[in-house]
Write a protein that binds this DNA or RNA. Structure first.
Length: 576
DNA sequence: GCTACGTTAAAAT
DNA sequence: TTAACGTAGC
């Protein structure tokens, strides 16, 4: 993530800092970095989408830090990542692949009853979903914390805000873990902030002004600095083999001109340099200088810095690598956290009639194509939501969807109006809209009865505990592609698994379609089975009487963790 | 000797 | 996922 080895390279310029330095100031926060850290403590629960309270611990983590800032009279401005930009697709795909592999390994270990190993893999499998971000957004809203969802990269948005005066929504510094902020030109960046508010700061002006410090940037301007970053390897473009941050720095200091560096590199590296490296290089450079950001004052998408005419010409007027243009109304809806930036589905909360204040999720999937939003289908979908969390004063703040219900619904309606329906001009569009029925799943409000899940502990022939799910009885309109994948992983049919993956990768597929495939799979397989070693469960320790207290204690704790696992699995399947 | 690259431990509680 | 460490190669 970020620029390879940049932080290490910039070590001489990092200074220890405490956030109280920004007392009375506005400070930007890269939401992703705290969400990700917070998710470590509950990685299994998140991956299994368990409904235990522990799953929401990442929200506590985040709010703890927000409260820390507020304690020091800092105004936090939380910025979320938006959609992915095309030139980052490779990086994203690679990350997805790794997470998926780790998730599968984790499930394997879980089935073996090895909770520790499973947790280890789950921690590598975490991804921060739009839903998690949205849950946080709801808390931030209720706590009156300023937040913003960037159209694309949060880093770009943060760096842009760092260049604005406070009166126009600007921020004095950014808290993040991502070295990209430096490439985007963020003036003051705080890395590695701990729970007490201690961190390491890099101030860009000091970097360029420093008289005689080891990696010297005295003859650098911003563009050369970005050039160095791209050469060293970034999310948008891997480096040429043999080039790291040091070589990148020395090339740039020597030639002081990026075109010259590129031609020298071509000469020296020959075939090792990819054909289109120069083109990709220019694009990556452009991302760091001209990324699309949301301009709150004008309420529309803008470039971080205007794209100069000569650059536009050299790119043949094509700027889609920065991510497609987004109409102002949609960009605003995204920025305010009402539209999922990658799927363009509306986040809407409202209350299940006659039930606990447990927010229901309705999604209005809308796809954005070539700068035009298209309503593809409407569908109701249920999801988990948090119940409560602790505020700074130690009080418990209840989520109250009712009071905001009408507001969200009208927002949703407004959104549907503002996003014009597609003109059916291709068979593809027609197919998608026809294939996805506008009807809601059978009964999204139905509460799953626990009786429908049988816990069968008597299979002594296999020595396994089986959690048996009858999908005939279970309505699963809430299932997301991830849910389905993990359930199928529990099942026994590899062929069905492949089939589901294919459905998952088909962007036009709807949740209904996926759910029905699951039902089909379950008909042929009959069961979903999660296993634990019977032996381990049988080793429930009696009170230590043979003098091996230590051993007994270990056994007891193992048993306890097995019980936990079992509960997690049960919770996973018994969600309403 | 310096640099790039691969491997490994720690992160949060 | 990153930071730190060791190693291989120029």
């Amino acid at each position: 993530m970020g620029i390879k080895d940049l932080l290490k390279f910039m070590k001489p310029y990092t200074e220890p800092v405490h956030i109280k330095k920004y007392d009375g100031k506005r400070v930007g926060i890269d939401a992703y970095s705290w969400l990700h850290k917070g998710a470590y403590s509950c990685s299994m629960e998140i991956c299994l989408n368990s409904n235990s309270e522990k799953k929401l611990r990442y929200l506590d983590y985040f709010m703890h830090r927000i409260n820390l800032l507020r304690h020091y009279k800092i105004t936090p401005v939380v910025v979320f990542d938006g959609g992915n930009i095309p030139c980052k697709a490779g990086t994203e795909q690679e990350r997805y692949r790794k997470r998926k592999a780790n998730r599968e390994l984790a499930m394997e270990k879980l089935k073996e009853g090895n909770v520790n190993a499973a947790t280890d893999f789950f921690q590598r499998a975490i991804s921060i979903t739009p839903l998690m971000a949205h849950q946080l957004i709801q808390i931030l809203r209720s706590e009156n914390i300023e937040f913003l969802v960037a159209p694309y990269e949060a880093d770009a948005q943060l760096a842009y805000l760092a260049g604005l005066e406070a009166e126009r929504g600007g921020i004095a510094a950014v808290i993040t873990e991502d070295s990209d902020l430096l490439a985007y030109g963020c003036q003051a960046t705080i890395f590695k902030m701990d729970r007490f508010g201690n961190g390491e700061e890099i101030v860009l002006d000091k970097v360029f002004d420093a008289a005689a410090r080891k990696p010297s940037f005295q003859c650098f301007d911003k563009e050369l600095f970005i050039g160095m970053c791209v050469l060293a390897g970034c999310d948008f473009l891997p480096s040429v083999p043999g080039i790291g941050i040091s070589k990148a720095h020395s090339y740039v200091s020597k030639y002081r001109n990026l075109d010259r560096v590129l031609s020298v590199l071509k000469l020296e590296k020959g075939r090792q340099m990819p054909e289109d490296y120069s083109k990709s290089f220019i694009e990556a450079l452009a991302v760091f200088q001209h990324a699309r950001i949301y301009e709150s004052n004008n309420q529309r998408l803008e470039h971080m810095k205007p794209v100069p005419q000569n650059l536009l010409e050299s790119l043949d007027g094509k700027l889609d690598f920065l991510g497609p243009e987004i109409p102002p109304s949609v960009a605003t809806a995204i920025a305010q956290g009402n539209l999922d930036p990658s799927t363009m589905e509306a986040f809407v909360c409202f209350r299940r009639p006659g039930c606990l204040p447990d927010p229901i999720f309705i999604q209005n999937p809308v796809q954005l194509q070539k700068s035009r939003a298209k309503v593809v289908s409407r569908q109701m979908n249920r999801s988990m939501a948090f119940l409560s969390y602790k505020t700074e004063g130690g009080g418990v703040l209840k989520q109250e969807p009712l009071s905001t219900e009408s507001m969200y619904i009208s927002e949703a309606l407004a959104l549907q109006k503002l996003i014009s329906p597609p003109k059916v001009n291709s068979t593809e569009t027609a197919m998608v809209t026809n294939d996805v029925p506008l009807k809601a799943p059978k009964n999204p409000f139905r509460i799953q009865q626990v009786e429908e899940i049988n816990l069968d502990q008597e299979d002594s022939s296999t020595g396994q505990i089986s959690v048996v799910i009858d999908h005939e009885k279970m309505n699963i309109p809430w299932a997301t592609p991830d849910d389905i994948q993990s359930e199928v992983f529990h099942g026994k049919s590899p062929s069905k698994k492949r089939k589901l993956n294919k459905v998952h990768s088909d962007q036009g597929a709807s949740i209904t379609a996926q759910a029905s495939v699951v039902t089909k799979a379950e008909n042929s397989d009959n069961l979903c089975v999660a296993k634990e070693s019977q032996e381990s469960v049988n080793s429930m320790p009696k009170m230590a009487s043979n003098g091996k207290g230590k051993n007994e204690k270990a056994k007891r704790s193992k048993h306890k963790s097995l019980e936990k696992t079992k509960n997690t699995i049960l919770n996973f399947f018994s969600r309403a």
